[in-house]
Simulated assay, not measured.
Amino acid sequence: MLVWATLVGLSFPAVGMLSEGLPPLSLTALRFVIAALAVLPLVWGAPGLRPSLAGLGLYGLMGLCLASFFGTMFWAAHLTTALSMATLFVSVPLLAYGLGRLVGVEHRALALLALLVLGAVGAVGLAWAEAGGSFARLQFGVGEAAFFAGCIASAMYPVLSKLGLAKGWLSEHAGVRTLWSLVMGALLIGFSGLVFGDPAALGRMTLFDLAVVAYLGLFSSGMTFWLQQRATAILTPAAVTAYGYLVPFVSMLLLFAQAPERLALEWLPGSLLVVLAIALLLRRDVKLRSQA
């Protein structure tokens, strides 16, 4: 999950290198297709490659979670600020814990809950520093409500994965689960792009754009989904999503590398809290695995 957080953090500057005016939903669907094609040869002949009816339905729900998150993220980006979205996104691990408890794939763990709160406070601190030490731009309107619904969908993804594993509906092979999640997500996001976007604008892609999308598909989608699925088989949904608190920390380090003048003490509190939360989470996960 540390590698996962690093890859996700590195994806943001890569997205910024794409040409302006390209349809985001269609680009996301293309990323998922590239990732699925890369994963397919690695899982050919693996157990559970052909899912049961219950498994196919669950993969559909997982794909819907991905489509809902990315769809609301792109839609809300025009109605709200990056600060509001970053602040709302820290709710995902806490939501995963609550939803996991609701469906029975999370155990009551006050220590984990405390770590989630600690990481959330640290991540909010990093968002505060990114905003120049002010929360004045924070608001809650239609855009924020839509993105929060997307955050709930994002939290449901590992919960559904864990539930499917517990019920025996999904393959035990992480690559197979990754493949079907990508396929279903690509279909639903691609359909959304056809209805709400301008897929014809993909014709304006340059070779450089295609190379960036291929990188995002292989590493920021295929590799990260595979890592998340591997972790989901071992960790609980809340513990898996909690490593997402490290993503803004990685983005912060990239920001300092590109603009050293942004380095200031206001970044320190959030950074320390995030690092402390991740260190304690790692210690907890290693301890639990050694006892298993």
Rank of each mutant, 00 (worst) to 15 (best):
G132S: 10
F135E: 12
A186V: 00
V240S: 08
S221D: 00
V103A: 05
A238R: 00
M156W: 10
S11E: 00
A36M: 03
C65I: 05
E172Y: 10
H107Y: 05
D209G: 13
A136C: 06
V142Y: 13
G98N: 11
P24K: 04
A46S: 13
L218K: 01
A123F: 09
M1H: 07
V8W: 01
L187Y: 06
G143F: 08
T87A: 14
M85D: 03
G270Q: 01
A5R: 00
M17A: 15
L99D: 02
S52M: 12
V195S: 06
L7C: 14
A166C: 06
A238I: 04
A86F: 04
L281W: 07
L263N: 11
L110Q: 13
G21Y: 07
R262Y: 02
G71I: 01
L280T: 09
Y215W: 15
A120R: 02
T80F: 13
P269E: 14
P248W: 04
A36E: 00
P199N: 04
T81E: 08
E261I: 09
W128C: 08
I278M: 14
A264I: 06
V8N: 00
A166R: 15
Y97R: 00
A277M: 12
G57T: 09
L188I: 04
L126W: 05
A257P: 08
F140T: 15
L27V: 09
K162P: 09
F32H: 00
A123N: 12
V3W: 06
L118N: 02
L165N: 04
R283Q: 10
Q258P: 05
L273N: 04
V176M: 05
R50V: 15
G119D: 06
E172I: 07
L165T: 08
L56H: 05
L235T: 06
F70N: 08
P269L: 05
V43W: 02
L246W: 02
V33L: 14
L202M: 07
G132C: 11
V39I: 15
L22K: 04
S52R: 13
F69E: 01
T236G: 14
M156R: 07
F191G: 09
A82H: 04
A155R: 05
L280E: 04
L18N: 12
P24L: 04
A279Y: 13
T87Y: 04
L268F: 14
L281R: 07
L18H: 10
V213M: 06
W4C: 03
T178F: 08
C65Y: 08
R284S: 14
R230Y: 11
A166Q: 14
L179Y: 10
V90H: 06
L216N: 01
P93G: 07
L61D: 07
P248N: 10
G175P: 07
S26T: 15
L263P: 03
L66A: 02
V121T: 07
L165F: 13
G45K: 08
A279I: 06
V103I: 14
F70Y: 09
Y59I: 14
G197L: 05
F89H: 13
G9T: 02
W44N: 10
F12V: 08
M17K: 05
L188R: 01
L276E: 03
A67Q: 00
